[in-house]
C-alpha cells in the first residue's frame, strides 16, 4: 500500500480518573490502548466494536479533537499531535467528521446556510457569492433542495439532517472523513439512503473514510478493510472479506454470530458471550477478552497477546494464533 493517507501508530488515549477533594489522579481509563492501523487513499476503513470499546475516541483522536497520550497519528505523513494549534486549524480543511447524532450535531439556532457557511468562513474560502454557490451545489450533491437554505436545522428529519452534516463535512473538499456512527440513529429506510450517498460521494470526490460503527452488517457493506476493537485494543484487523468469511478472534466470531439476521429460516449456531465488558479503568491483566472468552487459555490471563499476521491483510491479537 503505497498511498497511505492515515497512519495510526500505537495510539494511546488515557483519561485520568480524579477522585477525592484534592482531585488527585487515581488511575487512568485506557480508552484507547495501543491501537495501530493504516488507511490507504480512497479506501473505506471500518472500525467496529461495542459501546465503550474506544472506537469513537479513536476517531476523535484522529481528528485531533483529543490529544493522544501516546503514539501518533500521521496524516499524509505529518504528525498531527505535534502541530501547533494554528497549524492544526489549517490542516482541518483535509480532515472532516460526521457525527452520530444528526440532531445534536447541528446548532438549532442556525439556518442551513449558516451551518454550511461556517467551514468556508473559518478557512476564508472565496467571497460571499462564491460561498453561496458552493453551498447550493453541495446541498444538491447531498440530495437537499437548495430552496431550504434559509431553514433551521430543527425543521428537517433525521435523514435530511445527516445529509446537512455530510454536506458540511464535504464543503471544504477534505481528503479524509471520519464518520462516527453516521447511520445508527436513523431508520432502516433512511439508513440505506445515507449509505448510498456516502458511497456516491466517495466516488465523486475520491474520499477516504474512517467509518466507525457498531453495526457489522453496515460495515461489511461499506468497508474494504475492517478493524475490530475490544476494550480499547484492536482485536482483529484486515480486509473485510477475510474478517467476515474467516473470523479468527473469538470475540469477532461471537460478535458476528450475535447479529440477528432478517431471515427466520436461517437458524444459526450462536456463540453466546457470558458476562459484560470489563471496565476500561481496570482491564484484565492479560488479554482484554479473557473474562468472556470461550477458549481462554492460561497464558491469556497473564500475557497480553501481540498483534500477529495470520494471512495476507489479516492480523489478529490472540494467543490462539501465535
Amino acid at each position: 500500500m503505497s498511498d497511505t493517507l492515515l497512519d495510526v501508530q500505537r495510539l494511546q488515549v488515557h483519561f485520568p480518573i480524579k477522585k477525592g477533594i484534592f482531585q488527585r489522579t487515581q488511575g487512568y481509563v485506557k480508552a484507547v490502548d495501543d491501537v495501530s492501523f493504516t488507511i490507504a487513499k480512497g479506501e473505506t476503513f471500518g472500525l467496529v466494536g461495542e459501546s465503550g470499546c474506544g472506537k469513537s475516541t479513536t476517531g476523535r483522536t484522529v481528528m485531533n479533537l483529543i490529544k493522544p497520550s501516546g503514539g501518533q497519528v500521521l496524516f499524509a505523513g505529518e504528525n498531527l499531535s505535534a502541530l501547533s494549534p494554528k497549524e492544526m486549524l489549517s490542516r482541518r480543511v483535509d480532515l472532516q467528521m460526521v457525527f452520530q447524532d444528526p440532531y445534536a450535531s447541528l446548532n438549532p439556532r442556525l439556518t442551513v446556510e449558516q451551518i454550511l457557511e461556517e467551514p468556508l468562513t473559518a478557512h476564508q474560502v472565496g467571497d460571499a457569492a462564491e460561498r453561496k454557490r458552493t453551498i447550493e451545489r453541495m446541498m444538491e450533491v447531498c440530495g437537499l433542495n437548495p430552496a431550504y437554505l434559509k431553514r433551521y436545522a430543527h425543521e428537517f428529519s433525521g435523514g435530511q439532517r445527516q445529509r446537512i452534516c455530510i454536506a458540511r463535512a464535504l464543503i471544504l473538499k477534505p481528503k479524509l472523513i471520519v464518520a462516527d456512527e453516521p447511520v445508527s440513529a436513523l431508520d432502516v429506510s433512511i439508513q440505506s439512503q445515507i449509505l448510498n450517498l456516502l458511497q456516491d460521494l466517495q466516488q465523486e470526490f475520491q474520499l477516504t473514510y474512517l467509518f466507525i460503527s457498531h453495526d457489522l452488517a453496515v460495515v461489511k457493506h461499506l468497508c474494504s478493510r475492517v478493524g475490530v476493537m475490544y476494550l480499547g485494543r484492536m482485536a482483529e484487523i484486515g480486509a473485510a472479506d477475510n474478517i467476515y468469511t474467516n473470523p479468527l478472534h473469538p470475540y469477532t466470531k461471537s460478535l458476528l454470530s450475535a447479529i440477528p439476521t432478517a431471515d427466520p429460516r436461517q437458524k444459526k449456531e450462536r456463540i453466546l458471550l457470558r458476562g459484560e465488558v470489563p471496565s476500561p479503568a481496570n482491564p484484565p491483566k492479560g488479554c482484554a477478552f479473557v473474562t468472556r472468552c470461550p477458549s481462554a487459555k492460561d497464558i491469556c490471563k497473564h500475557e497480553r497477546p501481540r498483534v500477529s499476521k495470520v494471512e495476507d491483510d489479516h492480523l489478529v491479537a490472540c494467543h490462539l494464533f501465535t
Binding site: R60, M63, L65, M88, L89, S90, R92, V93, L95, Q96, M97, F99, Q100, D101, A104, S105, L106, N107, L110, E118, P119, A122, H123, C165, R168, L172
Partner: peptide
C-alpha cells in the same frame, strides 16, 4: 459538550467564534 460545538471544532472554527456563535 454538545456535538455541534465539537463539530465546529473539528471544522476548524476558532474558539472565539465558537463562543460567539455556538
Amino acid at each position: 459538550e454538545m456535538t455541534y460545538v465539537e463539530a465546529a471544532r473539528s471544522i476548524g472554527v476558532r474558539d472565539s467564534v465558537i463562543i460567539r456563535r455556538h
